[in-house]
Amino acid sequence: MSTTTRKRLTTSAMIASFVDEGQRTTPAPFGHALSRLAEERPEVVGLTADLGKYTDMHVFAQAHPDRFFQMGMSEQLLLGAAAGMAEVGLVPFASTYSVFATRRAYDFLCLDAAEPGLNVNIVGGLPGLTTGYGPSHQATEDIAILRGMPGLTIVDPCDSVDIEQAVPALAEVSGPTYLRLLRGRVPTVLDEYDYTFEVGRAAELRTGRDVTLVSSGLMTMRALSAAERLAEHRVDVGVLHVPTIKPLDTEAVLRVGRSDRLVVTVENHSVVGGLGEAVASCLAFGGAARNLVPVALPDEFLAAGALPTLHDRYGLSTDRLVRRVLDALEV
């Protein structure tokens, strides 16, 4: 019998932290940003489907109780009612988990909000692999589900800075939007860069002669860490952050695609139908087809477990990202 007693990591709470050790964080950036926006715009309202506390909507509910609407665990009603509110001139933000907004209530988002082009803002918690609770809660294919919906703006923010700036920007978009929410203590990273969130615009956070990491969401944070580590290996790595998956900043993507650098797409989403494939089709359709290295979740239902374990297993950890780039360069 083995005598090893190495302690295994355990699955933490539903919403596991992906904060790196010593990293700065900001509490509930979405809830606070929405509360601030509501002070300026009286038509802004908030709804949730029994997940206010888990999507930071509770911050808004406390700040503006008369503008918060609890719809119960009824996601079809959540999105239908949000559309009805937009029909009569309000600007709703409706929160639930990404899996429920996309898998369960797709028809309601599609026909009630997107087809009439209404200003309905969907806020989806637990995007990609941000919980260890298994496929019921891991929205690994939410972007794949939604990218085909005409007129929908899809935003995958990196950190608290992105979220704080995206909330008012999405309220300005006349049509429907989908925000992949990071909640709780959210890393604060992008304030160290000359960066402003703009809908539909990618941002070159750092330049590099050898490699460009084209990333979105929390993986931009990992891409920036990986770039630092790769510098130690004398690999010069740039990072193009693509917070808006749709409409894609095709100009910025084509510029990177036409360079002679190694291009690696990096996303917290299935390899099917997400940022990587959006970049690939953009390059192919734009006459700039080329090899790409995709760093993404596998096309599988993922395991349950501790988030650091899972990020390492499925290739999203900084260690795995660094290794993948070095392998691709055959260093």
């Binding site: 008369d66 239908g80 009805g84 509110m85 029909e87 028809d107 309601f108 026909l111 009630d112 009439p116």
Partner: peptide, 27 residues
């Protein structure tokens, strides 16, 4: 024509949102 029907089971939910929104706005 206030909404696009056809996919059934949508109208009442949208109606709930409209009724909530109109009441909220004092209409």
């Amino acid at each position: 024509m206030e909404i696009s029907g056809g996919s059934l089971g949508h109208g009442l939910g949208v109606g709930v949102g409209m009724a909530l929104g109109l009441r909220h706005r004092g209409v």
